Simulated assay, not measured.
Amino acid sequence: MHKFSIPDIISNIKAEKTFEAVSADYSFTIKIDNYAPYICGAVHDGHQFRKSLWENCLHTAYDRWYEEDPCTKEMVQSHPIVIAGRDSRFEYDLNRAPETAIYEDAWGKNLWKSPLTSQEREESLAKHDNFYKVVHALIQKIETLYGKTIVFDMHSYNWKRWDREVPTWNLGTSNIDNDRFGSLASAWSKRLETMNLPNGIKSTSKINDTFQGNGYFLKYITQNFKNTLVLATEIAKVYCDEYEGTLYPEVVRSVEVQLKELIPLQLKEFQDNIT
């Protein structure tokens, strides 16, 4: 994987070059094997945490891992276009708008021993800004080529913290054009329920049950590109022990293999039904 500057990444996209790169500051990765009519994103996959922030942070590495979305890039890594964050959401959250992307506290616990300096904040927000410059160029290119795009926005969530039964999969659709795309979201939910997961894990799916799809990644794309559908797709962390920090690679692999079949089916339905 080559290290590219933001201008070089955007230049490659505009020229329709295939490439695989990590951004020059190592904050995100992008892979384009071919300019397919869909994109996979994993904005919370990252666990990196800038060393200059370590001593000032009250959360442990496990605290951060617990609220991140490990393996969500791995679940879609075999698809032709994949963009994924490498930095922890505790440094800056790509799924929040810039003005709220740096946490003061996180899940009821103060994050910093002392407030961040303006320089520290600016360094983090510059990475956030660069990521969205590339996202914009990428969506713009795919919409130009195909007239429409579908984005699979992959996340995970801690299901054991809920005091009720929750689904294996949750789709957040409150910020998409449901008059136009609602039936496609329902179809995606039904497809996810067909997964046959290892270890006796049931694959259930609901829409707007645990989360409603209020993330900035979805909102940014939806507000700027009217012919792009973003499917905010969350898997419960059945692929790990969220309390022990143990990953179950057989479950991650099973999800990856089955998404290789299900995503193209969803893409075809999108292409056939959206003009």
Rank of each mutant, 00 (worst) to 15 (best):
W188S: 00
T149Q: 06
P98K: 09
D241T: 04
M1V: 14
N170K: 02
Y132F: 15
V166S: 00
S156D: 01
Y26S: 15
E91I: 06
E123L: 13
I13A: 11
Y62F: 15
N175D: 14
C57S: 09
T60H: 02
A24V: 15
G85Y: 01
Y103I: 08
A236V: 03
S124K: 07
Y92E: 00
R164S: 08
I102L: 01
L231M: 14
I9R: 01
N56H: 06
V22K: 11
T222M: 05
H128G: 01
I221D: 02
D87H: 13
L247T: 13
K237F: 04
S27F: 07
K113A: 14
D25W: 09
A185K: 05
G108T: 05
Y38P: 00
E165D: 13
Y35M: 10
F211M: 14
P249Q: 07
V43L: 14
N12W: 10
K148S: 09
E261K: 12
K3V: 12
N56I: 04
R180E: 12
A42M: 04
N175Q: 13
K148E: 10
F131A: 07
K202M: 13
C240K: 11
P249N: 07
K206G: 02
F217G: 04
C71T: 15
R191G: 10
D105R: 10
K206I: 01
L116A: 03
Y92N: 00
P167W: 00
Y66H: 10
R161K: 11
E99T: 01
V151L: 10
W112D: 03
K268M: 12
D105F: 08
F131Y: 14
I102G: 02
A84W: 07
H44F: 01
E104N: 12
N158V: 11
F217H: 09
W159V: 12
E143A: 09
Y66L: 09
F28G: 02
C40R: 06
E16W: 10
A36D: 11
Y35G: 06
S124L: 14
E67R: 10
N214R: 13
P167K: 01
L58G: 07
K3D: 12
A106L: 13
Q212F: 14
R96T: 00
N12Q: 14
W112S: 06
G46H: 05
Y92K: 00
N196H: 13
R180F: 01
F152A: 03
V134P: 09
L94E: 00
S88P: 02
